Computed example of a mutant assay.
Amino acid sequence: MIKQALLGEFLHEAENTRKLLKAIPDSALDWKPSEKNWTTAQLASHIAEVYNWYESTFNQDVFDMGAYQYDKGDISKAENIVAKFEDNVAKAKEVLENSDESAYFNEWRMEMYGNVIFPAMPKIQVIRGFLYNHLYHHRGELIVYLRSTGNKVPGLYGPTADDNM
């Protein structure tokens, strides 16, 4: 039952993420709001990468970020970021569909080089916070990036100011 709820939200929100990533023009990829921020390409790539964390979150009790490796590929074109997203979201969907609901309350933690980054908490809390909410946070940032570069924003939960009513 929990799995079906997670899967329903996952599918709905993956479509929203897809719409947002497809709205990025190549001309905006190098823009960033300040020296402290990522470029649009880096932020979009990170959004695509979050889907790569499903295997480690659902199927391991410890996610070792020190050993984690990820090939973001060529992020100089928006279509490459979308392609990486499509690969990652397909794998994440399979992990979620094959997950064992009885393990959702097992403890999970994140470490890096032996240091605890996320203390032990139930996997379901990590799934909602680290995978889902974390993604939504970065999508909100990406919307601001798109607006700041004069680009249109697709409606995710209804129409936007860009939609003709």
Rank of each mutant, 00 (worst) to 15 (best):
M1I: 03
M1W: 12
I2Y: 14
K3E: 10
Q4G: 01
L6C: 07
G8D: 05
F10V: 02
H12M: 08
E13P: 01
A14D: 09
E15A: 03
N16A: 07
N16I: 08
R18Y: 02
L21M: 03
A28C: 07
D30I: 11
D30T: 07
D30E: 07
P33M: 04
S34I: 08
S34K: 05
N37G: 10
Q42P: 01
L43F: 02
L43N: 05
A44P: 04
I47R: 13
E49N: 12
E49R: 14
V50L: 15
Y51F: 12
N52M: 04
W53P: 06
Y54L: 13
F58S: 02
F58V: 11
F58M: 09
N59A: 08
Q60H: 11
D61T: 12
D61C: 08
D61W: 11
V62E: 05
F63V: 04
F63K: 00
G66Y: 13
G66S: 14
G66C: 12
A67R: 10
A67D: 04
Y68S: 00
D71C: 13
G73P: 11
G73V: 15
D74P: 04
N80I: 01
N80H: 11
I81N: 07
K84E: 05
K84M: 09
E86R: 01
E86W: 07
D87G: 06
D87N: 07
N88C: 05
N88D: 07
V89D: 04
V89S: 02
K91F: 09
A92N: 09
A92C: 12
V95Q: 12
V95K: 06
E97L: 14
N98M: 07
S99K: 02
S99G: 02
D100C: 11
A103L: 15
A103V: 14
Y104T: 01
N106Y: 13
E107V: 09
W108R: 02
R109Q: 08
M110E: 11
Y113K: 08
G114Y: 14
N115H: 12
N115D: 14
V116K: 06
I117W: 01
P119N: 14
P119F: 11
M121P: 01
M121W: 10
I124W: 04
Q125E: 05
Q125R: 10
Q125K: 06
V126K: 03
G129K: 14
F130N: 05
Y132W: 13
Y136L: 15
Y136R: 15
H137F: 08
G140Y: 12
E141V: 01
L142Y: 03
I143S: 03
V144I: 01
Y145C: 07
R147T: 10
S148T: 04
T149S: 06
T149N: 08
G150I: 00
N151K: 12
N151I: 00
K152P: 02
V153R: 07
G155N: 03
L156R: 05
G158Y: 06
P159D: 03
P159N: 06
N164R: 13
N164W: 15
M165L: 03
